[in-house]
Design a protein around this nucleic acid. Structure first.
Lengths: 232, 232
DNA sequence: AGGAGTTAGAGAACCCGTTCACAAAATCGT
DNA sequence: ACGATTTTGTGAACGGGTTCTCTAACTCCT
């Protein structure tokens, strides 16, 4: 892991290929969004402080993050908005359009399919499938709901690498297996269940109830510290 | 911060009031879910290893987390499923029912309002509001969509402390301001925008596009490491 | 031209969280 | 009764990430 592969060779290339820390990767889309807004407003130059306030992080954090992608700002001036935006877009792969398949066309699947704003972030809903025959055939924005039986065929046809699971919990694991078997290597799972996947497949979990439970915990703390003399 | 306030006094009380690390808090709902499933299956005892595999973390991590809430397992045996479940439920405040308001009854708001599975986690959708007069009055499961003008009244009437923003980006900040003004102190924001709130108000951000962008980054890495001789 | 002010970039210090390793406490079998 | 085995709880080591601090480089004003 820490092996130093002839990095005297060339800094830029090494940087390009270097692993960017997860925490940084998670923030790059935020910076990208902020920079796009600045660009739309005609701003041509910005400081790390600008980006920081727009993204809700510290300016030091922004600079450290940007240093990972070897981006060149100019000292005393700041960053060129367009250049930095393009650099980040390139880094996180927004130069290409990623096709995703949504499995499950219930309320959540429909909401995701209808979501405006994937387009501007390099994401296209290429297919929506459901196991309910009653839903197959109905349209969802630009998409037509297809049978889950066609999952593998659709994934291959459209070269889909990313799948979204929007099924009830019980369906999540079988669906994940099907997605992986069809060639999907990244999964965004909205079902409140842990899905097991082979090595090399990434899974990200979004659980709304968990988010609310976390908020509830903090609410409870606020309440209890309020009536017995706040301990903070 | 590191001040030791007469902690010889009593360990349990001190523990109860002690700050539980954020990372732990985020995992407690997962443990709770796992334990509830075990309890439903009639399992009465479990090891940290059980919980760990069910929640997708390491057993050491589980033990460390549980140690923060002073939970008593028995060495050589494990944890009592019911007792541990109750202890966690109590810790994260699931003994009471938290009422939430959903602002924005578009696709996403509707999906959230229809979501089964809040109920079992101590969460109730007490109100759904939207600014579109055309939507006001229609029913969404057990709820009727009301005008956003009633936001403050509803929050107060139901003693709501948690708000969910499911509006387009432009509406997020004004809505957040209204929620805060009405007395809400925790916000779950689905709009892809940073919302500013006063101290004491918690905000959690859920951005589906960002999640997909993170996956896309990793996909890109997989692809590039595949064709130029994997560097990992 | 030179000084004052601004800002990126990088190294160091610090903090938080995870993993490791082990001792203490329980059960079970003999 | 006692040793073997299991499993918790915890202190220590480790690693990643954030913040701090300082230097270098650029602009603007005089």
């Amino acid at each position: 892991m820490n092996l130093l592969r002839n990095d005297a060779l060339e800094g830029a290339q090494a940087r390009r290929r270097a692993q960017i820390p997860d925490a940084t990767v998670a923030r790059l889309p935020l910076y990208l969004r902020a920079l796009s807004e600045l660009a739309d407003r005609g701003v041509t130059t910005c400081s790390s402080e600008h980006v920081a306030t727009a993204a809700g992080v510290s300016s030091a954090n922004v600079r450290k993050d940007l240093s990972h992608l070897g981006s060149y700002g100019t000292r005393g001036v700041g960053y060129d908005v367009h250049q930095l935006r393009d650099r980040i877009a390139e880094t996180i792969g927004q130069t290409q359009n990623w096709k995703v398949i949504i499995v499950g066309a219930g309320h959540l699947g429909s909401a995701l399919a209808a979501y405006q704003g994937f387009g501007t972030r390099g994401i296209t809903i290429a297919a929506v499938v459901d196991e309910d025959p009653a839903l197959v055939g109905s349209t969802l924005g630009p998409n037509t709901i297809e049978s889950v039986d066609n999952l593998a065929a659709l994934v291959k046809e459209h070269n889909i690498l990313i799948g979204i699971i929007a099924t009830p919990p019980a369906g999540a694991q079988p669906v994940a297996d099907q997605l992986v078997a069809a060639g999907v290597t990244s999964i965004l799972n909205f079902a409140p269940t842990l899905v097991h996947v082979p090595d090399g497949v990434d899974v990200r979990q979004v659980d709304v109830a968990v988010e609310l439970q976390i908020l509830a915990y903090h609410e409870q703390r606020k309440a209890s510290s309020a009536d017995s003399g706040g301990d903070e």
